[in-house]
Design a protein around this nucleic acid. Structure first.
Length: 271
DNA sequence: AGAAAATCCTGGTGGC
DNA sequence: TGCCACCAGGATTTTC
């Protein structure tokens, strides 16, 4: 399932190729999470300026308007000159002069949304509340600490919520907390400066490493050129319930927090 | 009111 | 083999 590193890997894999392309056609398959917001034919003739990313959202900047794109939990994009006829799970094609950008999304939790040029894409309700970008300079330790202090929920759930820091999904939340030796159930506000600094560094490290490695692929993520990532090979705790901790050999524990599974080592992450 | 918890969407997978 | 519970990200709704 695409998390931030996967989304960034996807973006990088086609941004250069699609910049400057002119839209020749747009086709919608089955409906996604939300309606596109315009007739697909409205996009024809427009030019692609570039592709940005905010959190797990990709923003295709056109010469007139924007396409906001989310991969949900099973979405993937491919961009190629020659694509076979759309398959059962292909739900959006943006045919351009440089190739076709295709969204494949079996579970259809993903979305493609058109915003007209008057809209400020950052002000859109889906983006407006998003937190700091963990891979950018804006992810400051002081700001992160201040945000953590005003939330009482379990640290794992604060990370997951996305309104303080984006892109730390279920996998990376468990991994970052392990790397920082912090128990996922610890109250966010209870974390002192030293542990917050450790967590901050861990989030940066875990995401940067996943990005270097081409994103994680717990199921079937692949970037648009078909390269698959391999983060799952190095997961320290995620998906390893009852298996020995790679550091201390005690069994990894799985618990549920807010309907989500969390993995941690009770010995390495004592509080 | 604001924070936290529950719910919902879909389809692949694994257990029986 | 067929059925069914389960799981996932995150917006939305409900509860506290």
């Amino acid at each position: 399932m695409p998390e931030l590193p996967e989304v960034e890997v996807t973006r990088r894999s086609f941004v250069r190729a699609i910049e400057g392309a002119q839209v020749l056609a747009a086709q919608l398959g089955k409906s996604l999470r939300w309606p596109l917001g315009c007739e697909p034919s409205l996009l024809v003739g427009r030019f692609v300026r570039t592709v940005h990313r905010r959190g797990k959202y990709l923003q295709i900047e056109l010469d007139h308007g924007w396409l906001l794109l989310h991969l949900g939990m099973s979405g993937s994009l491919c961009f190629a000159a020659d694509l076979p006829q759309a398959g059962i799970h292909d739900h959006f094609d943006l045919v351009t002069s440089r190739g076709t950008l295709r969204l494949n999304d079996p579970r259809r939790f993903g979305a493609v949304i058109y915003l007209d040029s008057l809209a400020d894409p950052m002000a859109h309700k889906l983006l407006g509340h998003l937190g700091l970008e963990p891979l950018s300079d804006s992810f400051g330790l002081a700001e992160f600490h201040a945000g953590l202090k005003q939330r009482k929920a379990a640290i794992k759930q604060v990370l997951l919520a996305g309104d303080l820091v984006v892109g730390v999904g279920n996998i990376y939340a468990s991994e970052a907390l392990f790397a920082a030796a912090i128990r996922p159930t610890a109250s966010s506000a209870s974390l002192g400066r030293v542990r917050v600094a450790r967590l901050h560094a861990a989030i940066c490290m875990v995401l940067a490493r996943a990005l270097e490695q081409g994103g994680s692929t717990l199921r079937n993520f692949s970037s648009t050129d078909g390269q698959t990532g391999h983060f799952q090979l190095d997961a320290m705790v995620y998906g390893r319930a009852d298996l020995p901790c790679k550091v201390c050999a005690k069994p990894i524990r799985m618990i549920r927090q807010g309907q989500r599974s969390t993995f941690y080592c009770p010995s390495c992450q004592k509080r």
